[in-house]
Amino acid sequence: MSEDGMLWLTFVLIGALATTLPRASFIVLGERASLPETLLKALRYAPAAALAAIVVPDVVLVAGTVEVFNPKLGAAIAAVLASRLSKNPWLPFVAGMAVLWLLR
């Protein structure tokens, strides 16, 4: 086998092991392996952190730079305020879209 082929085979094997072993360990070990309580508490914030990492750059940046007077930022602030002031799940959507529409 050529050196390039051996290199690609190594990449594929490492990739397969790096993705399969962590996932399979929870299935194979089951209840015998448990995560520490502090790690479990930290993992509760993972979905919110991932969502923030996706949404915040789109809301704050305009053409790659931070712009203070940004319609998306105003709409996001309105949606957050609406969610804090009311238990209605639709109000943040309506408030955010209304502010976005008005500022554009």
Rank of each mutant, 00 (worst) to 15 (best):
A48W: 11
R23Y: 09
F26M: 06
G30F: 04
V68E: 03
G15V: 07
M6G: 10
A53D: 01
G5D: 12
L102N: 02
A76L: 05
A50G: 08
R32P: 02
G74R: 01
I77C: 03
A18M: 15
A79F: 01
L73Q: 01
A75M: 03
I14E: 05
V55T: 10
A46W: 04
G5Q: 14
G5R: 15
W101H: 05
V28M: 07
V28F: 12
N88K: 13
V80H: 00
P71E: 04
F93R: 01
A95N: 02
S83C: 07
W101C: 04
A98S: 13
A46C: 05
K87M: 04
L85E: 05
F26Y: 11
W8G: 00
T10N: 08
I54Q: 08
W8N: 09
A53K: 00
E31F: 07
V12R: 11
D58Q: 11
P89E: 09
W101I: 08
M6D: 08
S34Y: 13
V68P: 00
G64W: 08
V28Y: 10
L29V: 05
S34N: 14
F11P: 00
A48C: 07
R84Y: 06
L51Y: 12
V80N: 00
E31I: 09
M1V: 14
V12D: 04
A24K: 08
V99Q: 02
W8D: 08
R32W: 13
G15E: 07
A18I: 03
D58T: 06
T10C: 07
A63I: 00
V62F: 06
A78W: 00
E37I: 09
K72W: 03
S86Q: 09
L35N: 04
L43M: 13
L7P: 00
L85H: 06
P89F: 08
T20I: 10
E67D: 11
K41Y: 08
A33D: 01
L29C: 08
L73N: 02
A33N: 01
T10R: 14
F69R: 06
A46R: 07
A82K: 01
L100F: 15
P36T: 07
